[in-house]
């Protein structure tokens, strides 16, 4: 038996842990672009902020896009509710609230991540330290994930946690693709300029997939392959299909355990069926942007339905 409020806390705890890490990854990819291509750096930082869903808030505070300001805003600014620091703080507050549902190892890893990031992000980050800060953020979230997977019982507590992780991750991957969808469109990709290569690598880097891509496809970057990898590949842990495979699985466990199906089950299955049946050609033919916009909308609805069906509030 699980309280609705506890399920809610677990769900958001994991969304925010995922988000804390995604912010670091986005800054990492932006940094790489800015280092390799100084001319359009501000445009790249704009894309990063768009992917993070933080563009509007950023513009209210700053007039120009500089690496230092964007990194500060996305990593340590506590007035930005999605920054790594805010996210880890929210994750920890949720973890504190649901503490009785967590193993000691999981709670301690979250508490320690919070303590160590709070210390590290207390002062503005020197540009020279940025790479090591990004590494540290990824390491802390990896430790949380490790303790979580290593010690948690695979029950409803685990299911609600995973739902949070995969809803957030699917949203993140879809946004990254949508911000850059135009560089993946065939009309541009035929040109295959150096610029495009950088852009493509940046997309892969923001989902930590620039190396694994080469293991699956040939060494050349092809826009259809990149889109295929991030949308349809079943084994790529940040692809939309991968996320929905697990969303459906955990929803099914819950449905079987409780002996009751809800609206969220239908929504997740519909998206999963669509991803399974689709080919990348179909998606491009129907319009990549339209596909992604629809996906993000449905994914948000799934989150709302989970909250309602399982009495989060």
């Amino acid at each position: 038996m699980l309280l609705g409020r506890t399920a809610n806390g677990l769900y958001w705890m994991n969304r925010y842990i995922e988000r804390a890490e995604n912010m670091a990854r986005l800054v990492d990819a932006g940094l790489r672009m800015a280092l390799t291509r100084t001319q359009s750096a501000s445009e790249e930082w704009n894309s990063v902020l768009l992917s993070a869903g933080s563009d509007v808030a950023f513009k209210q505070k700053y007039s120009d896009y500089t690496a230092a300001d964007v990194a500060d805003f996305l990593l340590r600014d506590t007035s930005n509710p999605s920054s790594t620091m805010s996210s880890i703080e929210t994750a920890r507050n949720n973890a504190r609230m649901v503490r009785t549902a967590l193993t000691r190892e999981t709670w301690e890893s979250i508490n320690e991540a919070w303590m160590s990031l709070k210390r590290m992000l207390a002062r503005p980050i020197d540009e020279r330290d940025l790479p090591s800060v990004l590494d540290a953020i990824k390491r802390e979230t990896a430790l949380i994930r490790g303790s979580f997977y290593g010690t948690m019982l695979r029950n409803e507590i685990f299911d609600f946690s995973q739902l949070g992780t995969y809803v957030e991750r699917a949203d993140n991957t879809a946004r990254i693709l949508d911000v850059k969808y135009y560089v993946l469109l065939p009309s541009i990709s035929w040109v295959g300029s150096t610029l495009d290569n950088y852009q493509w690598e940046s997309i892969l880097r923001s989902v930590s997939a620039h190396r694994s891509y080469r293991w699956v496809y040939d060494a050349d970057y092809k826009p259809t392959n990149i889109a295929d990898y991030l949308i349809l590949n079943v084994r790529m842990p940040r692809s939309l299909t991968f996320c929905y495979r697990f969303l459906s699985e955990h929803l099914k466990f819950l449905g079987d355990d409780y002996g009751e199906r809800h609206a969220c089950h239908a929504t997740a299955e519909k998206t999963q069926a669509m991803l399974r049946a689709g080919s990348i050609k179909d998606i491009f033919d129907a319009g990549l942007h339209e596909f992604l916009a629809g996906f993000i909308r449905d994914n948000t609805r799934l989150g709302d339905e989970i909250a309602q069906d399982y009495r989060f509030y």
């Binding site: 699980l2 609705g4 399920a7 609600f160 819950l254 009751e260 399982y310 009495r311």
Partner: peptide, 16 residues
């Protein structure tokens, strides 16, 4: 916020 009175008893809101 988890509790309310249901049918003369105190009850907690669970996922079920």
């Amino acid at each position: 916020q988890d509790l309310r009175v249901v049918d003369g008893h105190v009850a907690m809101r669970t996922t079920e």
